[in-house]
Computed example of a mutant assay.
Amino acid sequence: MNTTSVKNIRQLSMIDARRFATARLSSATDDLLVIDDISHFDFSEQALQMSFLIFCYCTSGRCHFTVNSQTLCLESGDLFIGVGEQILAKKDVSNDFSAKIILVSHECMQDSIVGLHQLWPFLLYIYKHPVIHLDAAERIWVEGSYTEVLRRVKAYSHRYRRESVTALIRLFYFDMCDVLARRAPVAHTQQTSSYNIFDKFIHLLSDNFRSERNVSWYSDQLCLTPKYLSEVVKNVSGRTAGQWIANFVVMEIKQLLANTSLSVKEIAVRLNFSNQSFLGKYFKNATGFSPSDYRK
C-alpha cells in the first residue's frame, strides 16, 4: 500500500483506498470509490490521515472512534460525513460492525457541488456533528441512494455514466441539505467563538465571493485582522480563509463555463476580475486548466 507513516499516523490516499473498492467511477483518476466492506480499513494500530470527502453509513453494530481528537460513536442507522483534512483513530469496534462507504476526491467534490451554495451554510454543523442519527425514513433514503450510486457507477457501458453519477451526487447533496436543515438550528446557540466566526465568514463569503476575493475585506466586515480570521478558519475547517474564497470562486467559474454560453470575458466581468487574462491565470493556477480547455 502506498502509505507514509508520520508519528503513528498513516497517510491514506484515494489510490490507497481503491484496492478496497467495490466499484469506482474512473480507473484513471480514482475520484469516486464505492466500498461495501469496511473491515479492510484496519486502523487499530495507526490513525489514518485523509483529505477526501467520506460518506459512511453504518448498517450494523457500532464503532467508537476519534476524528481530529473529537470522540464519536457510529451505530446502526447512523451516517458519518467527513469533510476536509481528517485524522481518524479507532477506539472500539463491535464484532458485528459493518458499513457502506462512498469516498469522493476533493476535485470530484468540487465538480459535483458546483453551484450548490445551499450546502455551505451547513458545513459548520457537519464539522461539529459529523455523525448524523437518521430516522427510519432517512435510513431508507440513504440506503436507496447508495444502491443507485453503486448501480450507476457499475454501468460501464452507459455513454453518460460520469454525468449521471455526478447528477446523483448533486441530488444527494440537495437531499442532505434538507436533512441538515431540520437539525442545524438546534446547534446554533451552542457555537463557540471560533465556530461562530467561521459560521459568519461562510455566510458572508456565500453572499459576496463574486465581487470580493481578498481576505482583508472579509476580516474588516468581521472586525478581525486577516491573520486572525485565517487562523480561526483554519483551526475550525482545516483550510485557510483564502482557500475557502478560492474554492467558491473556482466552483462558480466552473459552473458558468459548464452550464452557460457566457464568454470568458463576460464571466470575468461578472466575477469582478479586471480582465479575462487575470481570470484565466487565476483559474489555471487552481485547476491546471485554462477556462477554454475546461469548457471543451
Rank of each mutant, 00 (worst) to 15 (best):
G82F: 00
S193R: 07
F55E: 02
H158M: 08
F289V: 03
Q86D: 06
Y228L: 13
L257Y: 08
Y282D: 07
Y195L: 03
S292R: 12
I102D: 06
N8K: 15
L25I: 04
K284Q: 06
T22R: 12
N68G: 12
L262P: 04
S263W: 12
D92Q: 14
S26T: 15
R151Y: 07
S105K: 12
F209I: 08
S274V: 08
V93E: 13
R182T: 01
S26R: 13
P130S: 10
T287N: 06
C73K: 09
A99E: 05
V232A: 05
L124A: 05
R162D: 05
Y282P: 12
L256H: 04
N247P: 03
L229G: 01
M50I: 11
C177I: 08
R18E: 11
F248N: 10
D31A: 09
L229D: 02
G115T: 09
I202E: 03
A99F: 03
I169D: 02
K91F: 00
T147H: 11
C73I: 04
F201Q: 06
E138P: 04
Y57F: 15
A286Q: 03
L168N: 08
I54W: 01
S98P: 01
F122K: 08
E138W: 03
R270K: 15
I140F: 12
N2F: 01
V233T: 06
L279T: 02
I140H: 13
M14K: 07
L74C: 05
Y228G: 00
L72T: 03
Q11H: 14
S290D: 06
K90T: 10
S98I: 03
F209L: 10
A187P: 06
R159Q: 11
S261P: 09
H133Q: 06
M109Q: 09
T287R: 11
Y125W: 14
V250L: 07
N95P: 03
A47C: 08
L150F: 02
Y218Q: 14
K7A: 09
R10E: 13
F283Y: 12
G288C: 06
I140A: 14
E75L: 02
Q46T: 12
V269T: 15
I54H: 04
V34W: 00
S69C: 11
H106C: 03
S277M: 11
E266R: 15
A136L: 07
Q49S: 14
L257F: 10
I245H: 05
L279P: 05
Y282I: 01
R24Y: 01
F172N: 03
E143N: 04
S27W: 12
S219T: 07
N247Q: 13
L32I: 12
S206M: 09
A47M: 10
A89N: 09
F97Q: 10
G84T: 00
S98K: 13
E231R: 14
S211W: 06
E45V: 08
